[in-house]
């Protein structure tokens, strides 16, 4: 992939992730990570970390759009964040400590499970 093609491809990955994120209220990482690894050839660790970085603007834009329509529950958000701010650094350190192969297996299993739940629900 040439550099220009890669740039366009990355923007398209973001578009797809953002579309899904805004549509379902999720981050979109479950789509962006495999697109980065399989097509752009990024390592599993770099894909997870970079996907999470791209999720920040996606979540800001999505939350702003839902907030504009009054679809936010700040109380629930505050209590979820109290827990998530403790969990996130632990999860990030966990990622740094596992091998590429193991991380791929874990992500693949999680991804297939999420797909199964979504298909079935």
């Amino acid at each position: 992939m040439s550099r220009a093609t890669e740039r366009v491809y990355l923007v398209v990955v973001g578009l797809l992730g953002g579309l899904l994120g805004g549509l379902l209220g999720v981050g979109g990482g479950i789509v962006m990570v495999p697109l980065l690894v399989i097509v752009a050839g990024v390592s599993q660790h770099e894909a997870h970390a970079t996907s999470l970085a791209a999720i920040i603007p996606i979540a800001i834009a999505g939350a702003a759009r839902f907030g504009f329509s009054g679809e936010l529950d700040v109380t629930a958000a505050v209590f979820l964040v109290v827990g998530s701010l403790v969990g996130a650094p632990l999860g990030a350190r966990m990622m740094a400590g596992i091998s590429e192969g193991t991380l791929k297996i874990l992500f693949g299993v999680l991804s297939a499970a999420i797909g199964g739940v979504l298909l079935w629900s």
């Binding site: 209220g25 479950i30 998530s84 632990l90 739940v117 979504l118």
Partner: peptide, 15 residues
């Protein structure tokens, strides 16, 4: 749990 999975897997955790 959401925070942990989010940082580990590079996802938002919205699922």
């Amino acid at each position: 749990a959401v925070g942990y999975f989010s940082a580990l897997f590079g996802v938002g955790g919205g699922v």
